[in-house]
Design a protein around this nucleic acid. Structure first.
Lengths: 187, 187
DNA sequence: ACCTGAACACCGTTCAAGT
DNA sequence: ACCTGAACACCGTTCAAGT
């Protein structure tokens, strides 16, 4: 009969994310997640269908961490806030973050974030039929940088250097977006 | 006493790479590599110190696959050839390629490739003190795209669309490189 | 020097059983 | 409905032993 649940999917994901943040992806075992929740490993399978499903859940969690920026900012400010949020999320969750490159971002929150970028690009004057492609390139560059940074490709470089690189990257992208304005630009 | 070796590190890496290409990273087990070589799993440990070392070896292998382009080409052509080689290598080795984001490229071959990019950038007129940073940003963007493509982030998009995106990415980067020329530009 | 056989700790996952 | 105990196939890795 009905027995009160001791854990739920949310708690499983929360425990798993904390574990991955603290001990890396190879510290993320079903047994370790279960122990953190005071439960046997097999209890988890009522809430996630298997480990792949658990990882999918973690990726969804991450996509939630960069919500659309405040609408009252200018478009360059909004894109900059967004990029910084992405980078900060990568630093918080270095192991799980790399998984973002493995699946299309199809959750509701991811869609909202993408729409926010579309809006900024449209406001910047990017032609409607190019907006989706420009969003893809810009996201790829930011994501590629953030993953490289937390996964270890830049481990030879100082934090100071990486901050400067990230600024330069944003400059690069802003310049590209301006240039994608079919009305041209002058300033 | 001296016994003729039946296998060497090279053959271990070759077998491992083929296995990963065919069956993905989770099909790459020590047992499977050994079987492919007609040997017991424990025999491998004489040639690689452990599985992490084996993966490091595979990454080194990949870095070998995009050699510096022919010097007689113009700098935009050389960068374009290089970018295409990177993308082609990603498509040949989809599972292993993602690991490239995890370590700094410090092998001899990787250094030669980087030097080739430096040379192209210098020829394009990028200021000497900015060459290293521009190289990092350009490489990150190309690598980020290639990894996204083979790891699955773009799985919703057609090959046609991705080809167009890659072209646009190269245009973006060429524009940035031109703009980084301190002498300005006119055409 | 190189490979093997037996063994160990650990992993994800199943199934039937308990409440 | 939710959790447990026992069990299974598989994994990376060790060590002593064979040639």
């Amino acid at each position: 009969m009905g027995r009160p649940p001791r854990i739920g999917r949310d708690q499983v994901l929360t425990a798993a994310l904390a574990l991955a943040d603290d001990h890396g992806l190879e510290g993320l075992t079903m047994a370790a997640v279960a122990e953190r929740l005071g439960v046997t490993p097999m209890a988890l399978y009522r809430h996630v269908s298997n480990k792949a499903d658990l990882l999918d859940g973690l990726v969804e969690r991450l996509l939630t961490e960069f919500p659309p920026p405040p609408a009252e900012l200018s478009w360059p400010e909004r894109l900059s806030v967004l990029a910084s949020n992405v980078r900060a999320s990568a630093r918080r969750h270095p192991s799980v973050f790399s998984l973002l490159l493995q699946r299309p971002a199809t959750t509701k929150e991811a869609r909202a974030t993408r729409q926010a970028v579309y809006a900024a690009l449209a406001e910047a004057g990017v032609a409607e039929e190019r907006v989706a492609q420009v969003e893809r390139l810009v996201s790829t560059a930011v994501l590629g940088f953030a993953v490289s940074e937390v996964a270890g490709r830049f481990s030879r470089h100082s934090r100071r250097q990486l901050d400067a690189d990230f600024d330069a990257l944003q400059g690069l992208l802003a310049g590209f977006i301006q240039a994608a304005d079919p009305a041209g630009r002058e300033d």
